[in-house]
Simulated scan of single mutants.
Amino acid sequence: MGLGGCIILIAVGAVLTFATDWHMKGVNIPVVGLILMVVGVIGVTTFSSIARRRRIVVPPTPVVEGKPDHHRLDGYSDGYGA
C-alpha cells in the first residue's frame, strides 16, 4: 500500500469517527474509524521509513588537479589548423 492509500485510510477513518451518526447493530462505527486511522498512521510511518532507506547517496566526484592541456601549440588544437 502506498502513501496515498494510507492517507485515504486516515481520511475514511476520520469521517467514520467524527462525521457520522450511523448506528448499526453489532458494529461500533467510531471504533472502526479509529482502527482505520491507526492502520493508516502505521502505514505512513512504515512507508516513510522504507523510503528513507531507499535514498541513494552519490559519492562526491574527486577533483583532479593538474595543468590544463588545452593550450598546445601544434596548430590543430585551436580549431584553425590544417
Results as ranks from 00 to 15, higher is better:
F47M: 11
I50N: 14
A51Y: 10
M37K: 01
R53P: 00
V63K: 13
I56D: 09
G43P: 02
E65M: 05
I35P: 07
I50F: 11
T61D: 04
V41H: 03
F47R: 11
M37F: 01
A51W: 07
I42H: 08
L34F: 00
L36Q: 01
R52G: 13
P59T: 12
I56E: 03
I42W: 13
G40D: 00
E65I: 05
R55V: 03
R53Y: 11
V41K: 04
G40T: 03
R54K: 15
V64Q: 00
R55I: 03
L34T: 01
G43K: 05
G40P: 09
R53W: 07
E65F: 02
R54G: 09
G66E: 09
T61C: 06
P59K: 11
T45L: 15
L36W: 07
F47Y: 14
M37S: 10
P62I: 00
I35L: 05
R53I: 08
R52K: 15
V38F: 02
G43E: 10
V64A: 07
V44R: 01
P60M: 07
V41E: 08
P59V: 09
S48E: 13
V64G: 08
V44T: 05
T61S: 04
K67C: 01
P59H: 12
T45V: 15
V58Q: 11
I56Y: 04
R52M: 15
L34P: 05
R52H: 14
G40A: 02
R55Q: 08
R55N: 08
M37Y: 04
I56H: 09
I56F: 01
P62G: 00
K67I: 00
G66W: 05
I50C: 13
S48Q: 13
R55L: 13
S48F: 14
T46I: 10
V39Q: 06
T61A: 00
V58F: 13
L34A: 07
S48L: 15
V64D: 06
P62T: 00
P60A: 07
G66S: 10
G43Y: 01
I42E: 12
T61R: 09
M37E: 06
R53L: 13
